[in-house]
């Protein structure tokens, strides 16, 4: 085999290896979506979020570097934030209306805050590509969390975002100050 041909084969093998990593991220995102449907979310609404979440997780994991490193934390943090409002509903709260506003909305805010703080602290620990990590992690966490928070409508999504910003920003600033 010529050296150029060997180089091309090695390159293809490397890209296939990256694609395998991406397939695991895609599977993780799909499992979150399936869990949301299994916990009672409407498949139609989940499909809208999933068409953004699954390819984004795959592309970021395939690309690698800081954005790739943020995929797993983003999905885990977002998954946890997704489960909070769905857990409240499973415990007996109603899907819509005053009861949901009383329990689901705070659950979304708390979930968003937890996800934001977790991603911010991990991003601050990154040696290089901190902003890339933060952007990728927050995007994935927000999409994953909206699989659950969407049930509280746009108020749930807004609450989750505000929670993430309010909790994540001081954590990030504090971690920077300690460096």
């Amino acid at each position: 085999m010529e050296k150029n041909e060997l180089y091309a084969r090695a390159r293809r093998a490397y890209e296939l290896g990256r694609a395998k990593v991406a397939s695991k991220a895609v599977l993780g995102a799909a499992v979150l979506a399936a869990a949301a449907v299994a916990l009672g979310r409407s498949p139609g609404q989940i499909a809208v979020v999933t068409v953004c979440l699954v390819p984004l997780a795959g592309v970021l994991a395939y690309r690698g570097r800081a954005a790739g490193r943020a995929v797993l934390p983003g999905l885990v943090a977002g998954g946890a934030a997704m489960l909070l409002p769905l857990g409240v509903v499973a415990a007996g709260d109603s899907w819509l209306g005053v009861d949901c506003m009383r329990f689901c909305l705070p659950a979304c805010v708390v979930g968003g805050a937890l996800a934001g703080a977790a991603i911010a602290s991990l991003a601050a620990a990154e040696q290089d590509g901190e902003r890339e990590f933060l952007l990728a992690g927050i995007s994935l966490a927000a999409l994953a969390a909206s699989l659950g928070c969407g049930l509280a409508g746009s108020a749930g999504l807004a609450g989750m975002t505000i929670g993430a910003l309010v909790a994540g920003t001081p954590v990030w600033l504090l971690a920077h100050a300690r460096r």
């Binding site: 085999m1 060997l6 084969r9 090695a10 390159r11 093998a13 490397y14 296939l16 290896g17 990256r18 395998k20 990593v21 690698g64």
Partner: peptide, 14 residues
């Protein structure tokens, strides 16, 4: 060596 090299790159992500 060629097979090993291709294998190394296919597993580089791990």
């Amino acid at each position: 060596a060629q097979s090993a090299l291709v294998d190394v790159f296919s597993r580089a992500a791990e």
